[in-house]
């Protein structure tokens, strides 16, 4: 009877003093140290002309402003950030949702039905190590140059983490829970919805999170297939035009967009998985 004795849940009942300013600012401060050092190093390296190929931070910042709202360079890329971002987001989320829609049922079946496991598992294990980049030529042949190819590659990138984590979640349900359910009168197929699915949810969720991360990860490769719009397309075009500051802008936007989308997923997860001690990240 030691964990809780106040009637409220532990987080709120722990009787902690209100956080001091430093405890609240500490995570933010610490998280900014490495980026700040990197930025300083970048500034020093470019001002001392250790390299002439990398633009200065200020040039990149200026480019970013122009990319977002225009008014500085005023060329084809000015004020187009939102167009490219939306195009990439469409492919990332579309490919991701399609991957989830296919990987979840297949993963549940491989995890639960031995015949399906024997049928699909060896095949998928062989396909899995093939990197998305290796699929690029074939994908362009199959889906043509353009958005469909990008979509297909994002799908492939997100598919395996969702699949594997779903299988893992379904297969690692504590066997005692099946016994508990059956002695309480929940037997047969009802156990799938009452036991397997909720028990596998944390793993499934981890798979979705990794899958979405990988979808952002492969978007540049996916958009190398000759799409006119998208952050990957911007990076490829800028490279061809030797506009390195624009390449770096594209990278930064992808990083930030991927980060925000991950935080949103984590927030949903924390809400949905409040019961799981591992899921309070």
């Amino acid at each position: 009877m030691t964990v809780i004795d106040t009637g409220a849940l532990p987080e709120s009942a722990s009787g902690k003093k209100p956080d001091s300013l430093w405890t609240r600012l500490k995570p933010l401060t610490l998280s900014l140290i490495v980026p700040a050092l990197l930025l300083a190093f970048w500034q020093v390296a470019t001002s001392l002309r250790w390299t002439r190929l990398i633009p200065k931070p200020y040039d990149v910042a200026e480019m970013m402003v122009d990319f977002a709202v225009g008014g500085i360079v005023d060329d084809a890329f000015s004020a187009t950030l939102h167009i490219h971002l939306l195009a990439s987001m469409g492919r990332v989320y579309g490919g991701f949702l399609l991957a989830a829609a296919v990987a979840l049922p297949i993963g549940l079946m491989i995890g639960r039905i031995p015949a399906v496991r024997m049928l699909l598992d060896p095949f998928l294990q062989i396909m899995r190590p093939i990197p998305v980049t290796a699929w690029l030529p074939l994908s362009m042949i199959l889906f043509g140059l353009g958005p469909r190819s990008a979509f297909a590659l994002v799908f492939l990138g997100a598919f395996y983490p969702i699949l594997l984590n779903t299988i893992f979640g379904v297969r690692s349900v504590d066997p005692k829970l099946f016994e508990a359910a059956s002695m309480l009168g929940c037997t047969g197929n009802a156990q799938f919805f009452k036991v397997v699915l909720p028990a596998a949810l944390p793993s499934i969720f981890t798979g979705l999170r990794l899958g979405l991360g990988l979808a952002w990860f492969v978007i540049v490769v996916g958009e190398m297939t000759g799409v006119p719009q998208g952050l990957g397309a911007v990076i490829m075009d800028a490279r061809t035009l030797s506009r390195t500051e624009l390449v770096i802008c594209g990278m930064i936007v992808i990083g930030i967009a991927g980060y925000i989308s991950d935080r949103i997923v984590v927030m949903i997860g924390n809400r949905l998985l409040a019961w799981s001690p591992q899921h309070n990240g």
Partner: peptide
Amino acid sequence: MVFQDYALFPW
């Protein structure tokens, strides 16, 4: 049945 390790449904 009451198990030694409880076997409650954690969710």
